[in-house]
């Protein structure tokens, strides 16, 4: 039996919605098959008010052993570092987060807000939001760069907007069943098992990427979304095209550019009209290259690929 507590800070509840859609394993499987005892969750917990507070206090005191503390949303510090804008059970949420993290065997940040600050932490960041152990790419965050949970692991970050439900449940199961030692984390504390490959890995548009044929409008099935529509698949670490959404699709498969939501800088760009779903260029060359590719190499590759592209690459080959 592993006790799990889930709290929300500056959040839209999107990761909770995602979590409740988990299938392998499902949220119910966590309880029935993997012995996870959900102490409290904002959408599932039966307790209210003082009874919730009592659970939290018992976790901090050690009366209830806290194995996994899951946090969704940013840690809000406004106004002026007090955290009073996000009070919960009689005190700022940031104080609960600090105390519960120190009391827990494992701390898991779910979603881009809890991991790196996400949308709430965008400039000018009026809520003074932080991720648990990062603010964008800068290590530190609310708990500090040196934080380690009782198990010795730092915060395990499962980014995404939202995180895929299976990423959440599989990591929780790994931790709850004593296989945390198998987890290796990257420099941004993401489990490598999910975040070493790219969103582009497994993308059905890879042929069009290779032959440099662009999608020029939403809904087109031909072409690659990287060249014109701002897709960040080639430089975003996620398994979105390996572990499919709803078991059969992904953003890029549905014709929607990857937004790069598993990277610390998300959301990218300045969100002015016309900039989000448009590949940012300088003198006609993409500002952000596929990871590991330089400008000279990219231009040479493009010239070669366009020269060798077969005729079918210019057609919509996905005929119903």
């Amino acid at each position: 039996m592993a006790n799990l507590l889930w709290l929300q800070g500056g959040a839209c509840s999107g990761n909770t919605m995602s979590f409740l859609n988990a299938e392998e394993p499902s949220a119910c499987d966590l309880v029935t098959d993997f012995g996870i005892n959900i102490l409290w969750h904002p959408s599932l917990g039966l307790e209210l008010g003082d009874n919730v507070k009592a659970i939290l206090e018992k976790c901090i005191s050690g009366e209830i052993p806290l194995d996994i503390f899951v946090f969704e949303g940013t840690v809000i510090n406004a106004p002026n570092g007090t955290g009073e804008w996000n009070r919960f059970c009689g005190r700022p949420m940031k104080d609960w987060v600090k105390d519960l993290s120190a009391a827990s065997q494992f701390v898991v940040a779910i979603g881009d807000c809890a991991t790196y600050g996400g949308i709430p932490a965008m400039a000018p960041n009026p809520s003074e939001s932080q991720g648990l152990q990062f603010l964008k790419r800068a290590k530190g965050g609310s708990l500090g760069a040196g934080f380690k949970a009782k198990s010795g692991l730092p915060v395990i970050n499962i980014p995404g907007c939202p995180a895929h439900p299976d990423w959440v449940t599989q990591i929780v199961v790994a931790v709850a069943t004593g296989r945390a030692g198998d987890l290796t984390l990257d420099e941004f504390h993401r489990p490598k098992t999910f975040f070493s490959s790219f969103t582009q890995t497994g993308c059905t548009r890879n042929m069009h990427f290779a032959y440099k044929v662009s999608t020029t409008a939403f809904g087109q099935r031909k072409g690659c979304l990287f060249y014109d529509l701002g897709c960040r698949g080639p430089m975003t670490h996620s398994p979105c095209n390996r572990i499919l959404w709803n078991r059969h699709s992904s953003k890029t498969r549905a014709g929607m550019p990857c937004l790069g939501c598993t990277e610390p800088e998300f959301p990218f760009f300045d969100l002015n009209p016309g900039t989000v779903f448009k590949t940012q260029t300088v003198m006609g060359v993409p500002k952000d290259m596929p990871t590991g590719v330089d400008k000279v190499g990219y231009i040479k590759l493009t010239a070669a690929a366009k020269g060798m592209a077969p005729a079918w690459a210019e057609e919509d080959i996905f005929v119903v």
Binding site: V213, S214, T216, Y227, T302, A303, K306, A309
Partner: peptide, 12 residues
């Protein structure tokens, strides 16, 4: 720079 290498150009 020329159309041949442009993203919008369909070479065939």
């Amino acid at each position: 720079m020329r159309c041949q290498e442009c993203m919008y150009y369909l070479v065939h």
